[in-house]
Design a protein around this nucleic acid. Structure first.
Lengths: 323, 323
DNA sequence: TTGTAAGCGTTATCAC
DNA sequence: GTGATAACGCTTACAA
């Protein structure tokens, strides 16, 4: 049995049927497995992709990592996660480590606006558009904002507000507010906005709300928050102010996060298709012909009631779990 | 400049100061980085560890993966996660893939009682004791159960119950109930138990609770649940039955999970030291002398009030966030 | 201290 | 269809 022919068998390259069987048998008996490192050295393909995220424990990133891992596994790839803790310098350091680690590509979700990516290495970004050469996959944030406005207005809201926190660096998620405000304006519904940044702390929303209290009642009847997390915090503040949700004011968040990862929603929300996001990212990353990939893929979002909106009777309560 | 000497420089092996500087400079200019695959092929060390978990999106596993990733990164290692979806067969498949992937070790959290691990490869288990040759790191589940009992009794509870769901295969977590019951008995406080398995569905707890309703009041004043998730479900059921928490019955869960990963607790709880768990696991895995590792390491847990217990006035509300 | 050469386990390119 | 051989980029004795 010659080495070269054994290699062919292990790689599924046609070889004499009898020979093939004997090799397989011997491999089985000896517990032989191809050494991925030797193979990688020779072929320059490692069947490994990197995932760069700020954290693995925050629910959205955890869900994303989970789905990316599954999608890669399904394609015979492994995932190496790198966590940046929202630190732009750490993000750049990850890019360097990735070069060292000889991965075949990377899916990145970063907040460093001037990240230097290796033009040789396939990259896909999530929620952040870099350039036409780096495909970006994101939820339809603009459409999600519109959808939130539509749902609130359908449910009787006439004085709306948009609240956001998030990174200072511009990203696709900023379009949530744009879609929301645009829809409100097109329907002639008054809308206000308060856009803060992460460092600001959620307590800065309290003055905004307090200013809009008139005679013990809130002068708003619908609020769209840029994330479920923010919606949760706002609900807490409102409870402290004696404002009832959803009776006095209805609230819609964004993300579709669930308690314990798979139990109830935290609030009525615009759900991001996390699995689809991951699968699309992996597909774009691993596409054979990377010369003409779309610069941007926008995935449809959906609305799910989660207790912070007044639902029409026939709609029932929250419908189904999981995606 | 000879190849071998360059290698020495890249590995920090002493070499002429002047020479070293020149090599570093050249490497910088050419963007040279050591090829990890060639190095791994030669040295048989890959600076990579595997993590086997049921999921990356469930909060506890997500937190664990996050901390393990950080701990490995700090030691110059990378993590390759494998997700098993609680499927024993998938768990075994992961063990096979790990062999193929030539990792230096693996941290595993599985539910396959008769997993065949490679005796050559360093293993560490979380929450499941396999054998004296495989170190197991877990929280002090027994002590946590005792602590829960102590806290409930301190707060005036005199009719206690322990509720659990979880995997059918025995693990360290089973000791939570043992510790709880033991403490109650030693204090002469009556205690009941209902131990179900994962497949059973949480609705099977409802009859247990309903049977203990006497004249619109629950004949229990303290409940210890094996996880925060179960405590959450039980709270929901009790609310549906008109029982108030913590006024009528006080509840303590186990895990210390937080909403959105870092916000409020779901309930008063026994907190697992997730970061310590991860760091200890990594330390054991990467120990130079693996010949005499402890077969078992138990990490201390702590109690944190989260709204489902009546706290003495001076204790204040929930103390501090994070670990 | 520096340079040389063997070899790690593959795959790819040849003759056969 | 099969078997020999070079090369992938590195580490590590060992020789200079």
């Amino acid at each position: 049995m010659a080495l070269g022919t054994v290699s062919k068998v292990m790689n599924g390259i046609p070889v004499g049927e009898d020979y093939r069987r004997r090799v397989r048998q011997a491999a089985e008996k000896l517990g032989y497995q191809v050494n991925n490192y030797a193979r990688g050295l020779k072929t320059n393909r490692t069947c490994t992709a990197a995932l760069i995220v700020p954290s693995l424990s925050h629910p959205f990133f955890a869900a994303l990592a989970h789905e990316v891992c599954q999608a890669l596994t399904a394609r015979g790839y492994r995932m190496i996660p790198f966590v940046t803790s929202f630190d732009p310098e750490a993000e750049q350091a990850c890019i360097r480590m990735i070069r060292q680690n000889k991965v075949d590509g990377a899916i990145v979700l970063t907040y460093n606006p001037n990240l230097e990516v290796d033009p040789e290495l396939p990259f896909v970004t999530i929620d952040r558009y870099f350039s036409a050469t780096v495909p970006c996959v994101s939820s339809d944030n603009f459409g999600g904002g519109q959808l939130a406005a539509e749902r609130l207005i359908e449910r009787g809201c006439r004085r709306l507000a948009f609240l956001r926190t998030g990174s200072r660096v511009p990203g696709e998620a900023d379009k949530r507010g744009d879609g929301f405000e645009g829809y409100c304006r097109s329907r002639g519904i008054p809308v206000e906005s308060l856009r803060l940044n992460d460092g600001d702390g959620p307590e800065l929303f309290a003055p905004f709300l307090r200013e809009r209290m008139e005679g013990g009642k809130l002068a708003l009847d619908g609020i769209f928050c840029s994330t479920d997390r923010l919606a949760y915090d706002i609900c807490g503040m409102l409870a402290g102010m004696g404002v009832r949700v959803p009776e006095d004011v209805q609230i819609i968040g964004f993300d579709g996060m669930r308690k314990f990862g798979d139990a109830d929603l935290y609030c009525s929300t615009i759900v991001q298709p996390v699995r689809k996001l991951a699968e699309t990212g992996v597909d774009l990353l691993l596409a054979e012909d990377r010369s003409q990939l779309p610069a941007m893929v926008c995935l449809p979002v959906s609305y799910l009631p989660g207790g912070t909106t007044r639902e029409p009777p026939e709609a029932g309560k929250e419908l189904g779990r999981g995606q």
